[in-house]
């Protein structure tokens, strides 16, 4: 009997100790998560989510970026597999009331501060490249679609934008300045990144960004800006509509 009393005493002491530690750790963990969730949101170009989580996303970019290679091509499909009417998922930056297709041109802000403008005809002088790929939306859906246009890399090379192509980031903005993206240069120079003027072999419909849009298959669709108005460059990250709303800047697939 005395033996069992001892067992009971030891057991009670050990149990109390263990559960005290358990609940202390549980409370500590809960407090830690609460702290994380209540951290100030990053403002401006890095906005929308608690700062430590933004830092984690930026670290992820560093970890996964070495995987990127311009030789990793996005899988292509036969044209017959492409959707006849690809999904239209957003109209930010497509203000039709202020847009005049007749006077549209692509404005490029050069590194030296000069601005050069290009017409659609200037883009069509470059070799036409067609990409039929599984377009991936950050929301989680994907759809095979068929795009045609000029390689962004060809455009920069042909029109002497060499210094610009050496910079770290490329930015695009819609004519109404409502939508804008920043893209790391290696992804922008990927051979399947298009300055795109055709969908299913036809001129882009307005809802898909007539007259010229970006198609960048190595990123989620949010980077494939519709209706490019201005192109610009920087060595730092450039303003990005969805990054300001809490999304990762890099989102490389």
């Amino acid at each position: 009997m005395t033996n069992n009393d001892d067992v009971q005493k030891i057991s009670r002491r050990k149990t109390l100790k263990a559960f005290a530690s358990f609940f202390a750790l549980l409370g500590g963990g809960a407090a830690g998560l609460q702290w994380l969730a209540s951290q100030p949101l990053d403002g401006g170009i890095r906005g929308g989510i608690p700062q430590p989580l933004r830092q984690a996303l930026d670290q992820n970019e560093k970890i996964f970026r070495p995987l990127y290679s311009p030789e990793h091509l996005v899988q292509e499909y036969p044209k017959s597999a492409a959707a006849a009417e690809p999904r239209v998922n957003g109209d930010v930056g497509l203000d039709e009331a202020t847009f005049d297709a007749a006077t549209w041109q692509l404005n490029v802000l050069k590194k030296n501060g000069n601005q050069v403008s290009f017409s659609l005809a200037d883009l069509k002088k470059l070799p036409k490249v067609e990409v039929v790929h599984n377009f991936k939306c950050i929301e989680g859906w994907s759809q095979i679609s068929w795009w045609g246009g000029a390689r962004l890399a060809d455009f920069l090379a042909h029109y002497g934008l060499h210094e610009e192509a050496q910079m770290n980031h490329l930015g695009l903005m819609t004519p109404d300045e409502g939508y804008y993206v920043g893209i790391d240069m290696p992804s922008a120079l990927h051979p399947q990144t298009l300055l795109c003027y055709e969908l299913n072999g036809q001129p882009l419909p307005p809802a898909h960004g007539y007259p010229l849009r970006l198609i960048i298959p190595v990123k989620y669709g949010v980077k494939s800006l519709k209706r490019i108005g201005t192109m610009y460059f920087d060595n730092e990250r450039l303003p990005d509509y969805w990054t300001e709303r809490g999304y990762d800047y890099y989102i490389g697939l």
Binding site: G48, I49, P50, P52, L53, R54, A56, L57, N60, I138, E139, W242, R245, G246, Y247, D248
Partner: peptide, 14 residues
């Protein structure tokens, strides 16, 4: 809350 979800998911996955 897609942006929120992705941020937590891609931090805590590690």
């Amino acid at each position: 809350r897609l942006a929120d979800g992705m941020a937590w998911h891609f931090a805590f996955m590690w």
